[in-house]
Write a protein that binds this DNA or RNA. Sequence first.
DNA 1: TTGTAAGCGTTATCAA
DNA 2: TTGATAACGCTTACAA
Lengths: 338, 338
Amino acid sequence: MTSITITDVAALAGVSIKTVSRVLNSEPNVRDGTRERVLSAVNKLNYKPNLAARALAGSRSYLIGLYYDNPSPGYIADLQRGAMSACRKAGYHLLVEQIDGEKERWRPRVESLLDQVKVDGVILAQPVCDRGAVLDVLEERNAPFVRIAPAGDWDRGPYVYMNDRQAAYDMTDHLLSLGHRRIGFIRGHPEHSATQQRYLGFAQAMAAADQSPDPALVQWGSFTFRSGVGAAERLLNRPVKPTAIFASNDDMALGVMAVANRMQLNVPRDLSVAGFDDSPIAQVVWPQLTSIRIPVAEMAEAAANILIHKRLQQQAPAARLLDFELMLRGSVGPASLA
Amino acid sequence: MTSITITDVAALAGVSIKTVSRVLNSEPNVRDGTRERVLSAVNKLNYKPNLAARALAGSRSYLIGLYYDNPSPGYIADLQRGAMSACRKAGYHLLVEQIDGEKERWRPRVESLLDQVKVDGVILAQPVCDRGAVLDVLEERNAPFVRIAPAGDWDRGPYVYMNDRQAAYDMTDHLLSLGHRRIGFIRGHPEHSATQQRYLGFAQAMAAADQSPDPALVQWGSFTFRSGVGAAERLLNRPVKPTAIFASNDDMALGVMAVANRMQLNVPRDLSVAGFDDSPIAQVVWPQLTSIRIPVAEMAEAAANILIHKRLQQQAPAARLLDFELMLRGSVGPASLA
DNA sequence: TTGTAAGCGTTATCAA
DNA sequence: TTGATAACGCTTACAA
């Protein structure tokens, strides 16, 4: 039950193993006829090159690593779907690794992936992509990596991202276009990179519509359901309630909806609610939550492709921008006339 | 910038590479002093064996594959956390692969993992573990695999699981102990393995409490939020409403809560609601959902460990049972006196 | 355009 | 208890 090797293929095709190798790696200088004979032998034998041998002899392992920490399960799933899709198309495989931020326990794992497994590249997702120490380890070893939506350090290698500011701007614009003027905004966790960008987009859209910002209508949250509840209570217990609340992520938006429910406010008649992330829950609640879809899978796919095709390119792209999408659903309606 | 190899270690320790190999693989017949000299050389050089070379020469790749299809993101995340934990402890790495059930597109990927990457074993999660064709491919190649909560085929290799029937029994018992007698039950998707087991547990607990089963109180669902809504409407529009509804997963239970809300029924005062799965959403809704925690991460960890330690064991365990946990929260209360 | 031979860094064989 | 040396299956030089 020994598996078939390049030698078997060479023998059947009547060529040397080097020629088989050339065909397999799409190298030039192979006569068409020869190529066909080799390929037909490959097919006949159902030959598949051994990755360990390839990695040992050559410079490619056909493995891509994905580092993430502990964000929402939906984010991880999307990430992997995208990365896997790219890997599948190129004959690569995906190795996942959770990087525990707390302790320095991540270090041996990161080093192992580079020194032992010798992955061809690493995708760094939030929040790992913002940990300087991890980047240091990768740079020390000259390991190719691509970051997904990093918060800064824009000159430390390629990254893919989407425009959070513009997305928040567009959503705010949408609310304004429906007649809303008193729009509450709930900021996210102060240490998260997206927080500031999303707030900026909101503020700029309000300013562009000549809406003087009411500081009392901007509340801090921390991206959790509970913090959304707190912020919503502060907003909705004011003498003059806002007609819409834009929370900078879905979990907080759900908190807003819970409070509205408890206060007998009908969504969207009495209060419009918008979120950010388009998490799976957004479509489960009633009414369904208007939100912003982040192209997580697409970003991961783009990142994987950059790594996979690195050797083909003269110059790796420094950055790749992907589009968000406004998901308009039932939780947002026109401003009531009240 | 060439990396250090076993030869460097051997030179520093003043032994042959074979001796270094012996130490690294904990083989017998190495003098203590020699072992120590080797280990200190390993440490001094920060040497890490090359996995590709190991895989090529030996019979282990130190890679474990995880096949899943498209269940909830939370399930995937838990699965990976557990499997990764086991891998980390043993110096293994985790390769993930989504097995698309629809087409036969999965076949080349499964074969590639076995023939090219030569993973040391494969973990099969729901619903991949119930696809006979996938098992066939694995068995053809004599590839070690462990299934997580399979639906049947209990003689096709080792598996880990939990007792769905007992869990549903215990939850029903809990409702009965709170005075509920008219308990509605919502079954899951008929093709899903857990559906029958969970219903069985419910039915047995009811029978044990001498509750003649009212067929009208058992409704079909399909594990989706929407199907939960439908089933709940059928249950709650009856002349005599149930005082509690036990849905066989959380998504459907959320559907029940949504209907209850719409019908102005207070949960848990007017209606108790219980789910199954303890998905993340269970703690986000209000009141929080009473549910059953499935030890997904623990099952994955156990599965990985079975694969990793296979060579050490005389006889791989045929099955490993793990415990569920009743998560009692606000959505269930005593039966009202009405 | 093709082939020969030398690695790649381990583990396995077998002799010492 | 140790070590020389041959695999493992491929890619990379280099030669033809």
